[in-house]
């Protein structure tokens, strides 16, 4: 009698542990410190060749290193593809000159655009934002606004992820007209401020 009970127990144990959960390789969570860069904003742009090398060269050409590295600011970084589309717009026949050969007023216009991507002495962070608009003024003096948009989670309305949206006023005179872009990587902390990377699909350098 004893032997049979032991037999049942043994079979049961083999049976249950037969379905361990080695099927799920848990890669763990990304570590928080990944968003802390320990370099200045411009050095970070230099380090990310694939995404920002055109932007970094334009900042140096327009002499805005100090502006970008000013402590306590927020920098909205457009990616290379956005700048590529900008030049395709200016020179439709793909014959745009090398960056170094830009004329003075072209450089001046680009500098103006870059200044509109800097929010001086204000670190705009995700925690401070909500779906309602909050307004700032850019280094270039134009009005800008930030807000959050939420997605759905498994068809549960508005319970999904939230993304930052950065809008710039492009309206002439007192008529306000905002063009907006979604932030694809938010909250990178450089030694001197916050960096938000902008979507490159539909956003063109200078919001046009």
């Amino acid at each position: 009698m004893k032997r049979s009970i032991i037999a049942i127990l043994f079979a049961g144990v083999v049976f249950i542990c037969g379905c361990n959960d080695d099927y799920f390789t848990d890669g763990g969570l990304p570590d928080e410190k990944a968003s802390v860069l320990n370099v200045s904003t411009l050095d970070y742009l230099d380090s990310q060749k694939g995404q920002f090398d055109t932007l970094a060269t334009l900042i140096k050409l327009c002499g805005l290193e100090a502006e970008v590295n000013k402590p306590g600011n927020t920098f909205l970084a457009p990616q290379n593809y956005s700048i590529h589309n900008y030049f395709k717009l200016l020179f439709p026949e793909d014959n745009w000159p090398p960056l170094t050969a830009l004329t003075a007023e072209q450089k001046e216009e680009i500098a103006g655009i870059i200044r509109n991507y800097i929010i001086p002495d204000k670190q705009v962070e995700r925690s401070g934002l909500s779906p309602a608009y909050s307004y700032e003024t850019t280094r270039g003096g134009t009005k800008a606004r930030f807000n959050l948009i939420r997605e759905d989670y498994l068809e549960n309305v508005n319970m999904g992820a939230a993304y930052l949206v950065f809008g710039l006023n492009v309206g002439a005179g007192n008529v306000e007209q905002y063009r907006s872009v979604i932030v694809v990587t938010s909250g990178l902390r450089s030694t001197n401020g916050i960096i938000h990377v902008l979507d490159s699909n539909t956003h063109i350098f200078g919001f046009n």
């Binding site: 608009y133 948009i149 939420r150 309305v157 508005n158 979604i182």
Partner: peptide, 24 residues
């Protein structure tokens, strides 16, 4: 369309038909 409004709300339509940028 005002793309700054979330995807799940009824987005407002801007007055100027070509107010948005090149690809929007």
């Amino acid at each position: 369309i005002d793309f700054s409004v979330g995807e799940n709300e009824l987005r407002p339509i801007l007055a100027d038909p070509i107010a948005n940028g090149e690809r929007l």
